[in-house]
Amino acid sequence: MIRHFCAKPICLVLFVLLVLPVWSARADDFARLRKDSARISTITADFVQKKSMKILSKPLVSEGKFYYAAPDSIRWEYSKPLKSVVLSGKGGTKRYVSSGGKMVEDKTGGAKAMQIVLGDVAGWMNGRFDSNPGFTAALREGTDTLITMTPTGKSMAGMIEKIEITIFRKDASVKSVRIVESATAETRIDFLNVVVNKNIDPSVFQVVQ
């Protein structure tokens, strides 16, 4: 029944968020972002996600934690309202969901779909922020820095209209991310407690309990 679902847009945004705290430091063009991105070795951050849809009276709030270690290890973990974990690295991509109090591997294809996206992460980590053929990226400086990503092809048709990432200019931290799926649906992610280049235990990217 449910073999495949694509969490690509949100995953893509999280890649962006991983990179931006460093990339965005006084960023005024993508070349500078590429240069700055080379400094990243690890990132740890909490996030709060607010999902708005026409069917909801108020946003559905999710919380979780995000880990990254260069060159390609990622742990993307939701703790509320439902627990789920995506691990990605050299061993491929695996997705786990909470069932009956235990974390079980989701083999429906969700992880496979995400692996395709995570394959782009190396490019993002190398600063090829504006070279993903699936999106055009525009950067605008104002009170805050705003990066707008717009799908170029049909693969995102009906899934996502644009992604907006707002960054504080004063400290280069991410202020908010807005994924616009349609006129009546969007996802906003706020990152908190971002820590860059602090050692992360390797088990974080291997173990799900």
């Binding site: 449910i2 679902f5 909801l56 559905l60 993307w76 939701y78 996802t187």
Partner: peptide, 29 residues
């Protein structure tokens, strides 16, 4: 268990109408 999703349902017994949405745990509708 094959997967876990989030389901939103608005059901109106007076009109026998429904609105439904399914999203991933990551919030993708």
């Amino acid at each position: 268990t094959k997967t876990v999703m989030i389901g939103v349902t608005v059901a109106d017994p007076a009109t026998r109408t429904f609105s439904c949405a399914i999203m991933s745990t990551e919030g993708m509708a």
